[in-house]
Design a protein around this nucleic acid. Structure first.
Lengths: 358, 358
DNA sequence: GCCGCAAGAAGGCACGTTTCTGCACGGTGA
DNA sequence: TCACCGTGCAGAAACGTGCCTTCTTGCGGC
């Protein structure tokens, strides 16, 4: 007795609402959650009293009771001890935005958790599931999560043999092949690649696709690698690539800032784009629409990926999943701009061998 | 009896650890949390057993008991129904990164919550405090939070008279005045402004500072406004500004993409930068270091802001706060590049610096 | 020999919710 | 009249911690 109305330390609890409405706790719970069998009169009465008291159910108590927190972890890759990746701001921002939006629409919220967080931080938040961006081979965090039975959906194919709930990814191989074909069609004779030294799946798949393409068309690979997390190293690598004796007449840069870096390097060597050098880079940034010249970009469609990842994850959380892991491939989008469009009318380059389409 | 070892439905609980270690629940709790008076032998024994069982304390139960969740909300402004702001990707990413890092270092995690979320989503997550980015005048969400006694620290001065826990902001007025002085010193006679139609504090303060400066030096204001959330409108507005009969010979753009937009517009009108037009824009993006020419930017130091906001908030949460609201002003940083230097003595192309620097 | 003291550990309540179970009651068919 | 059933609601058991209180025990001082 003294408790329900006497303890006014914190916010109003469900007991206070029950007392004020003259009903039981059960009735309040049922009325507010739309459960049980109650006449509409009781329902509205309870709701009104709850509103009047400013009652908000305790998320912690509800989570404890139901086992569902409504929280989804968003694990971002880290370089050093800093979260996020340096080179893909626009990708991450777009992806996170879409994921946040999609989660919210289904009543979930996202918790940002860098992959390097120690276990105590992870265990300090009740997660219904986790989105992992670009999981590393045998990621210990990922293993731990799966071992604890928490649904995990990754952006990018998981490296090891970890039984993940599902993943969403682009077909990086097809994207690179199509892009290289596009450059060849525009007249490129020797296409170079600006790639990374990191071992993530995206870099690996893209690079091998490039090497395969080179082998198929009989071109010697021309590429430079640099640690993608170091923004300054990108400019240096771009410079190296264009300084080579076997300088390419077209370049594809795997990372977001490569476009401006390559453009600056080209300028430094007096190369005109696209006349002397064709340029494409993978980026979600809109600045490439207004550079001089505008640069052709490959978009990985982060918004579609972010949305798909969250949908799959929440389906799994709510038990709507199929038993087998859900794998979804999102098509990429090559936004063709001036930098990859040949200027001279037509140089007949024998098309290597059109496997698909013309 | 049957309960502790019989119920193997979920993860191991504190009871299981107590049973396996042959001690009481209290002892386990004390041993793992470093409380109570226990000999080191018991402590290490309990820890070992807990590790062996893979015990993770339930975050929900702990939150329910202690009233602390270790979660901090990160409220981002929304345009339409999409979270985040379109125009400030780099700022937001940097700020969020720093905030995440700072929070993590103190054992907290960040929850992304768009400002337009309805109340039920907010109440579904237990927050110890909230960071609000760029609060709007009389923001209902902000009011609600403060009314519920949740500590709130904002990035940017809060608009209304809401008794917020604290805020961190730049001195936008000083920044703009210094920047305009810099342009005037570089030889600008008529400085234009590319500003926004939104009513947020940043836009308002910067614009009035510009108008004040104009009045002080006796220059007619020359500015164009556009809805900052529409990326395409920026290019149009930049064009309008340079198409005016009273065309400025220097322009400051308030938003991130203004640099490339203005550069493109200048090119369109045959204006050379910086010879015919001096250019500065507010941006955290590194692309402006490698544009042609490199563009002078005003950095708002989002990393310092993000860190400061989180520190103030956590201090308040943990009761280390002073009673009065904490206000902290972060100095801005004008990164002078070619675009705002008149009569550059000679355009020496410097090779890119090595990654280690010197 | 008894009392006080302190270390070590256990008992049990409370946090606020959900939900299972079950009671009271009025109407209805047999 | 009685058994039966559906409706409207209440009691109380969890959920898994943290922590306040209490109990036991060994031991030294008077």
């Amino acid at each position: 007795m003294g408790r329900s109305s006497g303890r006014r330390l914190g916010r109003a609890g469900i007991r206070d609402v029950a007392a004020a409405a003259g009903v039981s706790i059960t009735t309040v719970s049922d009325a507010l959650n739309g459960k049980g069998r109650l006449p509409d009169a009781t329902r509205s009465h309870v709701r009104e009293v709850a509103d009047r008291l400013g009652y908000r159910p305790s998320a912690a108590a509800r989570t404890l009771r139901t086992g569902k927190s409504g929280l989804i972890g968003l694990t971002v890759t880290t370089y050093g001890d800093e979260p996020f990746t340096f080179t893909e701001f626009a990708y991450f921002a777009e992806m996170a935005r879409a994921a946040t939006s999609a989660a919210l629409a289904r009543g979930y919220a996202l918790v940002i958790l860098p992959a390097t967080s120690r276990h105590d931080v992870w265990s300090n938040v009740a997660l219904d599931g986790t989105v992992v961006i670009d999981p590393a081979d045998g990621d210990p965090v990922l293993t731990e999560l799966v071992r604890h039975g928490i649904p995990v959906v990754s952006d990018g194919r998981p490296g090891g043999t970890i039984p993940v709930t599902g993943w969403v990814d682009n077909d990086h191989e097809a994207a690179v092949l199509g892009l290289l074909d596009h450059l060849a069609e525009a007249g490129a004779r020797r296409i170079g690649l600006l790639t990374g030294t990191t071992t993530d799946t995206y870099t690996r798949l893209s690079t091998t696709a490039y090497l395969n393409w080179c082998e198929r068309v009989g071109q010697d690979p021309v590429y430079e690698s640099y640690p993608a997390y170091d923004p300054r190293a990108g400019a240096v690598a771009a410079d190296r690539l264009l300084a080579r004796p076997d300088r390419p007449d077209a370049v594809y840069g795997l990372f977001d800032p490569n476009g401006t870096d390559l453009l600056a390097a080209a300028r430094r060597y007096g190369l005109r784009v696209p006349d002397d050098l064709l340029l494409v880079c993978c980026s979600e940034s809109t600045v490439y629409a207004t550079t001089e010249p505008p640069i052709t970009t490959l978009s990985l469609k982060p918004r579609r990926i972010g949305t798909a990842v969250v949908q799959i994850l929440i389906d799994a959380i709510e038990g709507l999943d199929s038993t087998c892991p859900v794998e979804q491939v999102i098509p990429t989008d090559l936004i063709v701009r001036t930098s990859s469009q040949r200027r001279s009318p037509r140089t007949t380059v024998s098309p290597p061998r059109g496997p698909a389409g013309d």
